[in-house]
Nucleic acid binder design. Structure first.
Length: 482
RNA sequence: GGUCCCAUCGUCUAGUGGCCUAGGACACCGGCCUCUCACGUCGGUAACACGAGUUCGACUCUCGUUGGGACCA
């Protein structure tokens, strides 16, 4: 493992880059931070931390039309929630426009780029003609060798892609990848309105920010050869690339909105723990032997690129739920209470007493897999009035149950203690008196107290509710039997 | 359509030529536990896409086929 790392570093000119690993996450603020983006950020962050390097955050907001401040904020919130902390930034591309222009002009002066005066209509016609003739719809390089310049005429600046040869690179997760230059066309780097294009800003920024390892989704593989060519033309050291497979939905297509919750913050709202999500995301496309559970510290210690898989992974909600359940059970109960409280407040309009909440959590662990679900299950512990599930009420709050509830109400109030042993003795004696099984006694009581046919253990429920509430609810239930 | 990438249980994956009658985890099924539902626990079903090579030996290497995906249009 160590040897490989040194090999990686050999690619750098020491003058240009320090030996330190530098990675970045560079989202566009044109939408919510989604699961795939979050995993890319995680991999970059883990890789940097693992190698004692630095992680840079850059916001690619050159598309003024679609970029929104609220999305930038969402990205920041999402990363913070997960526990991914950037060492530098956030840097905004919108504040660096002069820089891109400067470098584009430099390429122009040095003969690596040229002005193209072709109009949109001309290009469109050429494209259609090429397609009709079965040719590739690439730009035909009409302006590439033009010597006459007309500064007043609108133009774009195109990069001069070599006409022949190959661009090859060693991808840190895929191995050797190569492209023929003649497959690439002369891409626009500066538009008519002087704004730079994506492939150009990425190169300028990554180079200027000293990024040593570019870890990104494999939807960018096709961009890589053009970018390498631009690094070389700009005389920048070429960084190492690692293309990680995309996350897919159940239909094996790239994860998108129609697959359900894709925004990271939706998972927070749904009651997932950041520990669980980080663990899950890390294991999606990466493995460390047979291990499944990783704390943040263990991930930093163990994560590395050679163990990243090459094939796309399908997002599996069941496994995420399992991990969430695991972390709810293993995190200190005080921490769970802290995180659960807002959900309780939102659903029961009650700010719960901390000691009572912890007692409730202990009884709900294993039953609820998310904080939200737990809050829903805990609802009946709060407030005077409870709602009865229709089916539970119809099945258990019947005429047959009336005498049972009445006897329970009477005997229960005389109980000296609410410990399990005395409660059990009481219910067993009622069962004997009525010639019924324990379950036939417990279920009506459960429904009377919780409104549901399913709840935590009845003795715990009674213990947490306390004598007063139990009395009120049993009385109310009896009054509801028609 | 062109370019590029990918291919082990339903899913995430271990596996780097003999350790593989292919391991773990989630999900699923069954037993136990039990006041309900879960948890827990024990056990079970389930995969190397296909075809040629290379090799004494291929899940592992090469090529092809098929299938899937991404990007561009």
């Amino acid at each position: 493992m160590k040897q490989q790392f040194f090999f990686i570093l050999q690619g750098y000119s020491e003058k240009q880059y320090p030996k330190m690993v530098r990675t970045r996450f560079a989202p566009s603020p044109t939408g919510q931070l989604h699961i795939g983006g979050a995993r890319t950020a995680l991999f970059n962050w883990l890789f940097a931390k693992h190698h004692k390097g630095r992680f840079v955050l850059r916001i690619e907001d050159t598309d003024r039309e679609r970029s929104r401040d609220e999305y930038t904020q969402g990205i920041l919130d999402g990363l913070a929630w997960l526990g991914i902390v950037h060492d530098e930034g956030p840097f905004f591309q919108s504040a660096r426009m002069e820089l891109y222009k400067e470098h584009a002009l430099r390429l122009l002066q040095e003969g690596h780029a040229y002005k193209c005066y072709c109009t949109t209509q001309e290009l469109e016609e050429k494209r259609k003609r090429a397609l009709k003739e079965g040719q590739k719809p690439a730009y035909d390089r009409t302006c590439r060798e033009k010597t006459i310049e007309d500064p007043d005429k609108p133009h774009v600046i195109r990069f001069k892609t070599p006409l022949s040869g190959t661009v090859a690179f060693h991808d840190l997760v895929r191995g050797e990848i190569s492209f023929q230059c003649d497959e690439l066309d002369d891409l626009v780097i500066l538009r008519t309105d002087q704004t730079p294009t994506y492939n150009f800003t990425v190169v300028v920024d990554d180079a200027l920010m000293g990024i040593t390892h570019i870890i990104r989704g494999d939807d960018h593989i096709n961009n890589t050869p053009r970018q390498i060519l631009m690094y070389e033309a700009l005389k920048f050291a070429v960084p190492r690339f690692a293309h990680v497979p995309l996350i897919h939905g159940k239909d094996r297509a790239r994860l998108s909105k129609r697959h359900g919750a894709t925004s990271l913050l939706e998972y927070r709202e749904e009651g997932f723990l950041p520990e669980a999500l980080m663990n899950y995301l890390a294991r999606l496309g990466w493995a460390h032997g047979d291990d499944e559970i990783f704390s943040k510290e263990e991930l930093i210690e163990k994560f590395d690129l050679p163990n990243v898989g090459r094939s796309p992974a399908i997002f599996d909600m069941d496994k995420l739920l399992w991990l969430n359940d695991h972390y709810m059970k293993t995190l200190p109960v005080e921490v769970v209470a802290e995180r659960l409280a807002p959900f309780i407040t939102a659903q029961s309009r009650t700010a719960p007493d901390r000691a009572k909440l912890i007692q409730i959590i202990r009884n709900l662990l294993g039953r609820a897999k998310t904080l939200k679900e737990m809050a829903q299950m805990a609802g009946f512990f709060f407030g005077e009035e409870i709602e009865y599930e229709t089916s539970a009420k119809a099945k258990f709050l019947t005429q047959a149950a009336r005498p049972i509830l009445e006897q329970f109400l009477k005997d229960f109030q005389e109980l000296p203690s609410l410990d399990e042993a005395s409660q059990r003795a009481l219910i067993e004696s009622i069962a004997r008196d009525h010639g019924k099984k324990l379950v036939d006694i417990v279920q009506p009581i459960r429904v009377a107290l919780s409104g549901k046919a399913v709840s935590p253990g009845i003795f715990e429920v009674i213990g947490i509710l306390g004598k007063d509430l139990v009395k009120k609810r049993i009385e109310r239930a009896i009054s509801l039997i028609s």
